[in-house]
C-alpha cells in the first residue's frame, strides 16, 4: 500500500521566538494517525481552541491545520507559576492523490480535531479474479 500521508516532525514548532515576522508563538499539535476501512483518521490535540477558531485548509495536496488561541488570564489574579505556554497551533500534512478530497470530514470536540480522509474509489484495492484455463 502506498504511503498515504507524510507529516512534519512533531518535535519542532511552526513558528519560533526568533522569527521576526510573528510575535506570538505557535505550537505543533500532537497527532494520532491511523487507517481503517479505507479511511485515514487524524486526531490533533488543540486545547484552548474554540471550535469556531479551527481552520482546516486544503491547497493542492497540502492539508493545513490551524487553531487560534485566545489568551486566558483570570481577572484580579497574578500569575504564580506557568508550567505550560499557550499559543496557536499549526501543522501541515501532504496528502496523496488517493484521498477523496471532496469527502473529507472534520469535527472538533473537547479540544481535539478529528479529520476523516476517505480513500477515493479508484484507489481502493481491486480484486482481479483468475480464471482457470
Amino acid at each position: 500500500m502506498a504511503q498515504v500521508i507524510t507529516t512534519q516532525d512533531a518535535h519542532g514548532v511552526a513558528t519560533n521566538n526568533g522569527d521576526a515576522n510573528r510575535s506570538a508563538m505557535a505550537f505543533t499539535p500532537t497527532v494520532d494517525i491511523f487507517e481503517r476501512d479505507g479511511t485515514t483518521v487524524i486526531l490533533a490535540d488543540m486545547p484552548s481552541v474554540a471550535p469556531e477558531d479551527v481552520d482546516v485548509t486544503l491547497e493542492h495536496r497540502t492539508l493545513t491545520l490551524h487553531g487560534k488561541v485566545k489568551p486566558y488570564a483570570p481577572e484580579g489574579y497574578r500569575a504564580l507559576t506557568s508550567e505550560y505556554r499557550i499559543g496557536d497551533y499549526i501543522r501541515n500534512f501532504t496528502l496523496s492523490d488517493e484521498i477523496d478530497q471532496a469527502k473529507i470530514n472534520a469535527t472538533f470536540k473537547n479540544g481535539v480535531l478529528r479529520l476523516e480522509l476517505p480513500r477515493s474509489p479508484e484507489a481502493q484495492p481491486k480484486k482481479i479474479s483468475v480464471k482457470t484455463g
Binding site: 489574579y77 507559576t81 481535539v112
Partner: peptide
C-alpha cells in the same frame, strides 16, 4: 499546570484535550 493567585483565591488551569 498554570497557577494564578489573588489575596483570597487561586485559579489553576491545565490542558487535557480529549
Amino acid at each position: 499546570v498554570n497557577l494564578w493567585a489573588a489575596e483570597d483565591g487561586i485559579v489553576i488551569t491545565t490542558e487535557l484535550a480529549g
